[in-house]
């Protein structure tokens, strides 16, 4: 099911496959403080063409916790890429040196291309504005831990839905489950891209695009918050006028359901102020804590399979 396969988008995984991953993650949670030898002798190549802290460190930690080793770079400026090497050639080289490649790149479709070139499995750790499948796995797992089932949930996704790859992958992930409704909350300039909307229609997901959190906060079981980068808006001054609509406050929470959980892929800026952290709704640190065990589970499933 997982052994030897590439992970380019969350769309490629079925609900059943995600369930296998989540069960494996449950066991990894028990061992996350230990050093296991499951991946002894295996080498993961981390090809980070774009800055990353938590994704890269959590992949590396996951590999080391399982007894594997890591090579790679996080500053392409110090590699042959700075000399003008193509992505294709860099991937061919890493393919020869390692058992698995994790790639992050600002160019859209880079991970799919890398997967076509490499014989070893390739995991997409983010390609431009398009996909971030392992973040979506963490997000879905957090919901599962908090609600047991996705059935009938009402879910809101807030922020930059046009350029945000974490938000996009989360939305694709939600379309796999029988949730009741998906609210896509963003300024008009940062609405979901056409291909995402087409996909939601194709999968029959019930959704509405709205502009203000105030209008839907009382309807939600899950609120997924993402950052709006003001430079994404055609007129950054415009951001000052609308920022209040995309900032979660204690006032919003007065209207919220008792069981509402708030998620955020982090890092955050002012869309999620510190005052929310101490509320029972805040689950984003719990969510961040699943980064390593999810990636441990995924690396184990891809490199040695479900048995063992």
């Amino acid at each position: 099911m997982f052994k030897g396969r590439d992970i380019v988008t969350i769309i490629d995984l079925t609900k059943e496959e995600l369930e296998v991953l989540f069960e494996e993650t449950d066991s990894m949670l028990k061992y996350k403080g230990l050093n296991l030898r499951l991946l002894e002798g295996k080498i993961m190549a981390a090809a980070f063409f774009e800055p990353s802290t938590r994704t890269r460190f959590s992949f590396e930690t996951a590999m080391l916790r399982l007894g594997g080793r890591v090579i790679g770079f996080s500053e392409p400026s110090r590699t042959s890429i700075a000399k003008g090497e193509t992505l294709a050639d860099t991937i061919r080289m890493l393919n020869a040196y390692s058992d698995l490649i994790v790639i992050r790149h600002s160019i859209e479709g880079a991970a799919k291309f890398a997967a076509e070139i490499a014989d070893v499995p390739v995991i997409n750790a983010g390609d431009g504005t398009r996909h971030h499948p392992t973040q979506a796995m963490i997000d879905l797992y957090t919901i599962k831990r908090n609600f047991e089932s996705f059935d009938g949930l009402e879910v809101g996704v807030l922020g930059d839905l046009k350029y945000g790859r974490a938000a996009t992958s989360f939305i694709y992930g939600m379309s796999k489950y029988p949730i009741k409704h998906l609210y896509l909350i963003s300024p008009p300039q940062l609405k979901c891209r056409n291909e995402v909307i087409e996909y939601l229609k194709f999968t029959g997901t019930s959704f509405t695009e709205v502009e203000k959190l105030d209008d839907v906060i009382s309807e939600l079981d899950v609120l997924y918050v993402t950052r709006i980068q003001r430079e994404r808006l055609p007129d950054p001054a415009e951001y000052e006028k609308i920022r209040g609509s995309y900032r979660v406050t204690l006032n919003h929470l007065k209207e919220a359901r008792d069981n509402l959980i708030i998620l955020h892929p982090l890092p955050r800026t002012d869309e999620l102020p510190n005052e929310i952290d101490s509320t029972k709704h805040a689950k984003y640190f719990e969510q961040a804590g699943y980064g390593v065990p999810i990636r441990m589970a995924l690396l184990k499933l891809i490199l040695v399979g479900e048995e063992i």
Binding site: T86, L87, A88, S106, I107, E108, A110, G128, T129
Partner: peptide, 10 residues
């Protein structure tokens, strides 16, 4: 920004 539009990638 699509990979297919990057120069020299095969």
């Amino acid at each position: 920004r699509c990979i297919t539009n990057q120069p020299r990638e095969p």
